[in-house]
Design a protein around this nucleic acid. Sequence first.
DNA 1: AACTCCGATGAAAACGTTTACATTCCGCCG
DNA 2: CGGCGGAATGTAAACGTTTTCATCGGAGTT
Lengths: 343, 343
Amino acid sequence: MAVTIRDVAREARVSVASVSRALNGSPAVTDETRQRIASIAARLRYVPHSAARSLITKRTQTVGALLPDLYGEFFSELIRGIDLAARSKGLHLLVSSSHGDTNEAAAALRAMQGRVDGMLILSPHVDAAFLRANLPEAVPAVLLNSALKGAQHDVLNIDNYGGAYAMTRHLLDAGHASVAFIGGPEDNFDAQQRERGYREAMAAFAPKAAVKVATGDFGEESGYRAGRAFAKSADRPRAVFAANDMMAVGCLRAFAESGLRVPDDVALAGFDDIPIARYVTPSLTTVHVRIADLGRSALERLATAIEKPGRALHGAAPMLACEVVVRASSGGKTSGRTTAKRA
Amino acid sequence: MAVTIRDVAREARVSVASVSRALNGSPAVTDETRQRIASIAARLRYVPHSAARSLITKRTQTVGALLPDLYGEFFSELIRGIDLAARSKGLHLLVSSSHGDTNEAAAALRAMQGRVDGMLILSPHVDAAFLRANLPEAVPAVLLNSALKGAQHDVLNIDNYGGAYAMTRHLLDAGHASVAFIGGPEDNFDAQQRERGYREAMAAFAPKAAVKVATGDFGEESGYRAGRAFAKSADRPRAVFAANDMMAVGCLRAFAESGLRVPDDVALAGFDDIPIARYVTPSLTTVHVRIADLGRSALERLATAIEKPGRALHGAAPMLACEVVVRASSGGKTSGRTTAKRA
DNA sequence: AACTCCGATGAAAACGTTTACATTCCGCCG
DNA sequence: CGGCGGAATGTAAACGTTTTCATCGGAGTT
């Protein structure tokens, strides 16, 4: 830190302007002097003072990520994707996670003011009003997995609908005549989309079958309760599709306790492909989401939004495809991975 | 961003100095003017330009976290602990993760130059030479889980030794006469400590029993191989302690294939308490590490190192205690959690 | 040979703060 | 009533860059 651009200039017997130009690759400097300056800078271990630089350029080369209190695998995969993409774009990553409520998120968002060139926001707490109040319109933002519609902000979603649609279809294709669903929290965007996917696939491929939906909250316990209810019910479904893996795991436990064999008596599927899915018995058929890809493309969109500020948003909010991962719990014949297609 | 301290000053009919003082809580300003300035600043949505501020104060209010390519649960818990502590200290968090090798880590470390007031470093790739070459001695750093000894840097470790010691003792206490061990990668610091804990506990509590160690690499597959070998061996151990949970899971699979019942025929334990541990059958007895606590206290140490630069390092590297979590796989009578004590 | 033009370099302003130092104002003491 | 001290406020320098504009040579043109 002690060594500044002046030190380099003095040593190289040029002005600070030349040093700046040489180091920033301006064409208006001889190759010869550029060489000399570069080698001297290296020898002196000169590192440009980033604060001074951002003061004048109004760029921080940093993007912020605002995340809610997030579950293990999802969080780390997302950050990995973001981080990798950020590095390749020469951007730094400022994270602020574990926001329990709207106020915390707002505080975090404001605290990042001026420290970042753009924001990646994934949070159930944000809505249009929140953004208007806390996000200066000058700073570009990409919203992840948000229900927000207005063309005000750039949005990137997981194709929950398509994944659920494809999974429902898979279960029907495997020969299970009736497929029931365990839903997630009512106010959860992902959960809504998944349920819609289930309902529409049922309507499309098994119009005569009953649509049966149990309520859950994404917790294992709620899956367990739903599983017990299904096990006892008079017209027990031939397959159960839980809106996430944790509920599927709970459901599996309920079936085991009720003496039902999976998948022989009843098939089962989840959503998310958490690591546990592979290790339960029988292994769980589920929908895999390439979370790291979500992070990567979110960052890439943000980067272009930063580079070309005026640009209109690129049409409709794009969807990140999901894959059906067929394991033991769904029975039937096929096995392996297939990418979910939109209907 | 458009509104600067001058705007506030003009509006309040005072000098920029007074605004600065008022907003930074200097005592040399009347309560009345402070009020007025504060309200005007709020009305104008004035946010101090952090780059300008750090330029003059030489503080960024940011700490960097350098992490290797890290597995899900551990990563997210660690970041959560760090993030929470950072927020309560008013510090921002710049992360750079997913470093595969030394060069990447070095590049990342250098890129953070001047953007952070201190660094949290968790990486198998760092050693004394690495730090000397890439970390200016002016920036405080806390090393996590590092074998580094020199009092040069502040170090914070997980008590792998104590955890392994306690687990070995637990298995012996549960009545298993012989306990075998599946080790991790030879060059892995955690793995070494765990093996040492196992060996010393055996020496202390079962001096007559044979010490049996299989080699593994922390991967599930290597646990499976070790499990098969143990299952076939003439003097099959009564209990197996794997140096991490993934290997324990692999081992469990091997036992199941060999027709061995766990824990009746052979007890099993792991280390880490990954989420899967709860869901395998039987549920896995393991050692739980409070990773978020590790992150939190690392950040707190770093924060004090930043505040009081001259301070000597606080004596020996402290250890973060582990807990033995007793589940079904270890058999015996006791059940629940006990905090591991050092020998 | 004088002029023009262009490419390389330098001088200095600007970015938005904080803070050392100067100034002002007021009450108080002698 | 004059001077003094101290509290409140103002002025301006400093932080380390980037960038505009000016300057300086030298080559090419007439």
